[in-house]
Simulated scan of single mutants.
Amino acid sequence: MVRFGVVGTNWITESFIRGASHHQDFQLVAVYSRTEERAAKFAGKYDVDNIFTDLEEMAKSDAIDAVYLASPNSLHASQAITFMKNGKHVLSEKAIASNSQELGDMIRTAKDNRVVLMEALKSTLMPNFKAVQENLDKIGTVRRYFASYCQYSSRYDKYKEGTLMNAFNPEFSAGSLMDIGIYCIYPLVVLFGEPKTIQANGYVLESGVDGEGSLILKYDEMDAVIMFSKITDSTLPSEIHGENGNIRIDKISTPEKVEIIYRDGRSEDLSRKQLADNMFYEAEEFITLIQQGKMESENNSLENSRITMKILDEARLQMGVKFPSDK
């Protein structure tokens, strides 16, 4: 068994627990929250006895082997480093850090302490994304990657009413790019590596974070076009265009239907069965790495997280989005 603690008591933590609970070697043993009342209430849902309001105390506890971080982006680096220095493996929600400097510190700490550090980007570990990887050669030379993830945030209504929610607060290294744009960028990096150039545009809210934006990324033989937003909706699928056909992905953040449309009009359904509790796949990958003594994932590797963070940094620089965490 791998004994997990969780940091954060929000809906994403509950989604992770539901998914991870499908794994026979997952055991939830500890909960952290800033208040004892909230920690106890959340822990009670899962019959967990160990509750913490002191992060250092939790990191030093012999009760846990690993931790899932679902805290705001701005806290990921400091929290992860605290746990890793105490020999705990860390699965951190995306974005794994605020910027490249923080991520560099996290990676060094992971290597120094021989623990697993992985970014919890679920989509690149799901069966339907692996179907894309395994069938990419069928569409010939790839010329364009197009990804769109635009989802109107219910928190935006509160923002317009004058309430600054975490999702639109630069103090928490938030915004559309960091929250959902990354779902478009990370698969691109896994499939095609680091781009040669980056062009970014976006609409920056008065709070200082981006509400929406777009990227054009150049590779030697192809380009990538990415659109993301938390202030508008879109139902566009994502596509990878090859000279022999294109792969259509219904939802880049949670691929459920994947198909090839060939130039001659034929289609091929690549879709695979997946658990509805799809955060299972990141938990499965993370637990396997720990049990096999491996230091990092193949798809969600530290190098892929480093390249993704480099793109996020440059995009924010061009859009004019700065976080207090930036130095």
Rank of each mutant, 00 (worst) to 15 (best):
E256D: 07
R38N: 08
S148T: 10
M227S: 15
F280N: 08
G44E: 07
Q133G: 03
I107D: 03
S253M: 10
P255M: 09
I247F: 05
S15R: 14
H22L: 15
M295T: 12
R155P: 02
L121M: 14
F129P: 00
M165K: 14
S33P: 03
G265H: 08
K60P: 07
S61A: 09
P255H: 12
S153E: 05
M84K: 05
Y186L: 07
S297M: 06
S123F: 01
T235G: 04
V209H: 02
R143F: 10
P255C: 11
T53V: 11
T9G: 00
K138Y: 02
S123H: 08
A276V: 15
L91Y: 03
R263G: 11
C184T: 12
E296L: 00
M165W: 06
V67C: 05
Y203H: 12
T163P: 09
A70F: 03
T109F: 11
S154E: 15
N50C: 13
E37M: 10
A63E: 14
E171S: 09
K60G: 14
A95H: 12
F16C: 09
G162V: 00
E298N: 08
E303G: 00
D326S: 03
R144M: 15
N299G: 10
P324H: 11
K158V: 13
V132K: 06
E239M: 12
I311E: 06
N278V: 03
T235Y: 07
Q101I: 12
G140M: 01
P187H: 04
A283M: 11
F42L: 02
Q292M: 08
S305C: 09
E259S: 15
D326L: 05
K230I: 03
E298S: 08
K130G: 02
I64W: 07
K130A: 04
S229L: 08
I64E: 02
N166L: 10
I182K: 11
I240Y: 03
K160M: 15
M295C: 04
M84G: 09
S21M: 04
S271N: 06
K310V: 00
E102L: 04
Y145A: 06
T82E: 11
Y145D: 05
E221D: 14
V189N: 01
E221G: 05
L125A: 09
I107E: 08
S325V: 14
V29P: 02
K138Q: 11
S207R: 11
S154Q: 15
D65C: 02
N278S: 11
I17L: 02
P72A: 07
D137N: 07
R316I: 05
T232I: 13
A283D: 04
I311C: 12
E102V: 09
I139Y: 10
N244K: 13
S301Q: 01
N86T: 13
S61H: 00
K196P: 06
F280G: 05
K111R: 13
I64V: 12
H23E: 03
A80F: 03
I240E: 06
L302T: 00
G211T: 07
N201E: 14
Q291N: 13
N304W: 01
